[in-house]
Nucleic acid binder design. Structure first.
Lengths: 201, 201, 201, 201
DNA sequence: TATGAATGAGCTTTCATTCAT
DNA sequence: CATGAATGAAAGCTCATTCAT
């Protein structure tokens, strides 16, 4: 009556995902230090010991989640490498992010996790890898901005500088939403776009 | 001979300030949980026990610093209540903040501390007081924006929404600067103002 | 395979009892302040951390033990509410106490714990509850004394006064025994009874 | 204008006595561990550092006080070595103790201090010396009891046993008084004497 | 594989003691 | 001699991690 290996693996996978889901939610809401392994286990509906069959340390779980966050972020990269108008691309991209952040979707948690990582840091190697990935995103966005500038859609200025500003805005919004909760009033996509778009005054 | 009372008070004051300076720096860089009392003591060049002659708990030290941060923030309030053109007022205000953040002045640490508090939280009463102070700042800025809208300087839209966006930007910038360190390229004041100013395209 | 819930509960119970036994012994012998959690852990043959799975604070452990002591004391209450001759009741009661104190049984530790609590105090609410329970015992004894007086067995005088004196004697004996150890020579039950009984000189 | 050596010595003596008075009061009321050096300094109206000019350690202060207590107790020894009737001697002795305990005089504090020492212990050598002194008192009382027995005043039985019982009673009363405060109802001297006196029933 | 009891390193906090003035 | 700021060892407590079942 032993379970097949396949069954075992499927169950294992489900557990792993429960842990990661709980970890993502808790780490992003309360931060690394303020979240205990017990918290995560309870939230995932399993025992503390079981977590250690999937992740060697609390740190490793966090790093794995951060990796996912980066990957998720990178997926958005392709949004930024299209043949459509850069202005439209950015607008769509921004609309997607905003919607996620406001509806507290998983992506919103990923964003906060990244902020956490920026602020709390973890291990140095992870931080470095993470920084690299992040900077790549910033640079991709910068390229798109540059393209937009050439097309006359975007205003002039150092593209990287504008790109960094753009992501600062997104991150700031995610923080503010977490802080204010239901009292938060979200900006319009247009408001965010205005600082990129060419103005004629 | 015993020290005079004046001497004692001066010594006490110096120590207290060393503790607060070290605490502000460390809490803002590493967060509440990641900063140990020992860290602070070492950074301040004193013994751990001495901290407790000045602050009953680690929490109290953090709260005191946050109080200062809020006060510092409130001071900036008056910048927002002038008779000058709202556009100019905002530009100056923004320039001041940017300069501080980029030069890693104390104010920059205060900003991060506030972000920490938003994200990690501490005691509930402190959080509430803090939220109140913060919201007051947001509302003052909103009033100024409204004034600017009436003068035709600022673009239309819910003033509070724009105010929140503005502070999200500032906060996002402070985070990004902390994260990227010297690699960070700061935005221009004009770029930030574009979130607010009327565009004529 | 995971342990069954029953197994876990049994283990937990055993540990809890080891802690309480060690705590009772050490607190009663050395007092609250002089007994460290480490002492108790070592004496119970477990780690310090484990104590905190069972009792939130050192204080709570002490209070729980005191609660037991009070309960144990209350159990003796029924000895004092019988239909037998008050003189005989007291004699039996006293003999029981004496035997316990001298044989260093658990009850003897409970007695000392109560003395500790009288002298060191702990939390105010606990103290109050304790005082109430103690006074109830004193009053029950007083009632029995009154009955004895009416029967002509006991000498005259304020029954509460005599009751307090009686328990002072018992407490004093417990202290003295702790202090002198094996050198201690215990009194006879008759000697203790003599101050209650009617004398005809 | 330097003070004379004599003046200095007098001042020093006064300070020392202030410390000892405060220490006696606090140690007897709250116990050794629960009393801090700062408490004593404040209560004596001096600085903490000054205590260390008079006593090398907190322990030493306690021991010195205990020494005094023992001495004070020994002084009572002569009460027990008189030519008067043992019954009368004991009655007077008891009356004196009772009065002191109830009026919270210094002697009452000494009594409590001794109980503290019995319960909390301090250093071993001190404990031993103390035990010796105490036992001497017990033995003197025992001798007096023996004399009383021969005179037919006191009841029969091992004199040491009765002596220990007598001092247990005294100690128990002091504890009970501390515990109950104003609610305490003190026994009569006669009631206490009944433990010793010959009864004719 | 899954559990949660058990461990112990590390943190916050206290306080006897020292020392510069 | 007198002060109280400063020290640091030791206590209480937490929690990531291990392990017997």
């Amino acid at each position: 009556m032993a379970r097949t290996q396949e069954q075992n693996e499927r169950m294992s996978m489900i557990t792993r995902e429960k842990i990661m889901a709980a970890g993502l939610r808790l780490f992003s809401q309360k931060g690394f230090s303020m979240t205990s392994i017990k918290d995560i286990a309870q939230s995932a509906g399993i025992s503390t010991g079981l977590i250690y069959r999937h992740f060697a340390t609390k740190e490793e779980l966090f790093d794995k989640l951060l990796e996912n966050a980066i990957e998720e972020l990178s997926k958005t990269n392709h949004f930024l490498t299209t043949d459509e108008s850069p202005a439209q691309t950015f607008a769509q991209f921004t609309a997607g992010l905003l919607k996620d952040i406001l509806s507290s979707e998983e992506l919103s948690d990923y964003f906060l996790l990244i902020t956490r990582c920026m602020l709390e840091g973890t291990t140095q190697p992870m931080m470095d890898e993470f920084r690299k990935a992040d900077i790549s995103l910033f640079e991709n966005a910068a390229k798109l901005i540059e393209k937009g500038q050439k097309l006359g859609e975007f205003k002039q200025g150092d593209p990287l500088k504008l790109s960094l500003l753009y992501f600062s805005v997104i991150q700031g919004i995610a923080n503010m939403k977490l802080f204010m909760g239901d009292q938060y009033v979200a900006p319009e996509v247009e408001d965010i776009m205005d600082f990129l778009l060419k103005t004629t005054n």
